[in-house]
Simulated assay, not measured.
Amino acid sequence: MFQRTGAYAPVPLGDLMRALWTPYVWFSRRSIVVLIGVQVAVTLGIWLSLRATWLPSPVGIIEAWRQLIVNQGLLPNLLESIRTSLISLVAAGLLSTLIVFLSTAPLFWPFAKFMAALRFLGFAGLTYIFTLLTKNGDDLKVGLLTFGMTVFMTTSLMAEVKAIPQSSIDHCRTLDMHGWRISYELVLRGKLDTILDLVRQNAAVGWTLLTMVEGLVRSSGGVGVMLLNQNRYFNLDGVFAIQITILLYGLLQDWFLGWVRQAVCPYLATE
Rank of each mutant, 00 (worst) to 15 (best):
F2R: 10
A7M: 14
P12K: 08
P12Q: 10
L16C: 13
A19N: 10
T22A: 06
T22V: 07
P23D: 04
V25T: 13
W26S: 11
S28F: 08
Q39D: 05
V40A: 08
T43E: 02
G45W: 07
S49L: 08
A52G: 04
A52C: 08
P58I: 12
I62E: 02
I62W: 11
N71S: 12
N71A: 07
A92I: 11
F101A: 07
S103E: 00
F114G: 05
A116Y: 02
F120T: 05
A124E: 00
L132Q: 02
L132D: 03
D138T: 02
D139S: 14
D139K: 02
L140P: 01
V142R: 05
F147S: 00
V151S: 04
F152G: 05
M153E: 10
T154Y: 06
M158E: 03
Q166N: 11
S167I: 04
S168R: 09
R173M: 14
R173H: 12
L175N: 10
G179N: 12
G190H: 05
K191C: 15
V199N: 08
L210M: 12
V213S: 02
V213F: 01
G215R: 10
L216Q: 15
R218S: 14
G222L: 01
V223N: 00
V225P: 05
M226I: 02
L227I: 02
N229Q: 14
Q230L: 15
Q230A: 14
Y233R: 06
F234D: 06
N235A: 11
N235C: 04
D237W: 01
V239Q: 11
F240K: 03
I244D: 00
L247A: 15
Q262Y: 05
P266K: 03
Y267L: 08
